[in-house]
């Protein structure tokens, strides 16, 4: 809804963090310098009192690109802005600066008509699968809903629903069920079927395996991998599960408190993380091998509050390598290798 703080006019210019040459920028999706700010709660009273508090910065200067048929994992802890970024791409979250370009078309501002094309060619899978299914509609109706929204002729609706359900490994008999009658894994499959109904080029999957048992998680991941191979769909995979990232993604981007800190090929980043935060994340992942038990936690403290964003590099409060430079100056993106960039004053070797 309209609010004065979201207007582009209020945005200060951001330090340019262009990706270096060599990183392909002719992708399916290009996000450039994206900023999302929301007014501080209670800001109205303070403004009436004559003070003008700065808005909360949820995302700051995020630049990312995604090629067709690729899986890019977006990693970060709670409050890092992962879900906000996904919502911004789908036009569900207004942004105040930067641009989103999808299949060469620039998307800015609000208004449903501008996002209509993207919403036809891209789909989002929400974190809470059961809650993202309209409770009073049947499964058959739900999976064909995108076709009906975009006026796609589908002949026999029941047959189309059956086709989509079998594509994700569900029985067409499920079409008559209601969302509350589904198990977690089944609901997840229904959301995948619905996302694929329009044969999208891009699927944004927000924690697609959260809360699932490992065997069901494996089934969902296999399903997504198989559909990518068959249909050439690109995934933006949002997750905090690094094992999943390592397993299914081609490239990964690490987000900390609204800033990207490292982007690169998954194999390269996991084998040799250059940002101390990425390294700590990787080291924190509990290993299934008891022999590789860590001596202690790799990272102390918690993610700072958005209300109290540290100056300079946002990570300096928890970083063991932080210097005075980190406390004052926000680091720029620097290439450390082909297609591997890191925003750190003192990157790891």
């Amino acid at each position: 809804m309209p609010d004065p703080d979201a207007g582009p006019a209020r945005c200060r210019p951001w330090p340019t963090r262009r990706l270096p040459p060599g990183v392909a920028m002719t992708g399916l999706l290009e996000i450039n310098e994206l900023c999302v700010r929301v007014p501080r709660p209670g800001a109205l009273w303070q403004r009436l009192g004559g003070r003008n508090p700065p808005p909360l910065e949820i995302l700051c200067g995020v630049t990312l690109d995604l090629a067709a048929g690729e899986t890019l994992a977006l990693v970060g802890e709670s409050g890092s802005g992962k879900t906000t970024l996904a919502r911004a791409i789908m036009g569900l979250q207004p942004f105040c600066a930067g641009s989103i370009r999808f299949e060469q078309a620039v998307l800015t501002g609000r208004g449903r008509r501008r996002w209509h094309r993207l919403r036809r060619r891209a789909a989002m899978i929400f974190q809470d699968a059961v809650a993202s299914l309209s409770p009073r509609l049947t499964v058959g109706r739900l999976v064909t809903e995108p076709l009906s929204i975009h006026g796609r002729p589908m002949g026999d609706r029941a047959a189309e629903a059956g086709r989509l359900l079998s594509m994700v490994g569900l029985s067409p008999d499920m079409a008559g069920r209601y969302p509350r009658e589904l198990s977690g894994g089944q609901a997840r499959r229904v959301t995948v079927a619905r996302a694929l109904a329009m044969e999208p080029r891009l699927v944004i999957a927000d924690e697609p395996t959260a809360g699932l048992d490992v065997s069901v998680q494996a089934e969902i991941l296999n399903l997504m991998t198989g559909l990518q191979r068959d249909l050439g769909v690109a995934y933006l995979l949002i997750t905090h599960n690094l094992a999943v990232v390592r397993h299914v993604s081609h490239r990964m981007a690490v987000l900390y408190l609204g800033h990207l800190v490292e982007v690169g090929a998954t194999a390269a980043v996991t084998a040799r993380p250059r940002h101390p935060y990425t390294a700590a994340l990787l080291a924190s992942e509990p290993s299934i091998d008891p022999a590789r038990r860590p001596a202690g936690p790799a990272l102390d403290g918690e993610v700072p509050s958005l209300f109290d964003r540290p100056p300079g590099c946002a990570f300096h409060t928890r970083c063991r390598r932080a210097t005075d430079l980190c406390r004052t100056l926000q680091p720029q993106f620097l290439p450390v290798d082909t297609g591997h960039v890191v925003a750190c004053h003192h990157p790891l070797d």
Binding site: V214, S215, L221, N222, H247, V248, A267
Partner: peptide
């Protein structure tokens, strides 16, 4: 065995399909 095999955490290198139950 199946439970451990289905967990992607035991794989050092990604890609391919995970065993399921």
């Amino acid at each position: 065995r199946r439970l451990i095999a289905a967990d992607p955490g035991h794989l050092a290198i990604g890609g391919g399909l995970l065993p399921t139950i």
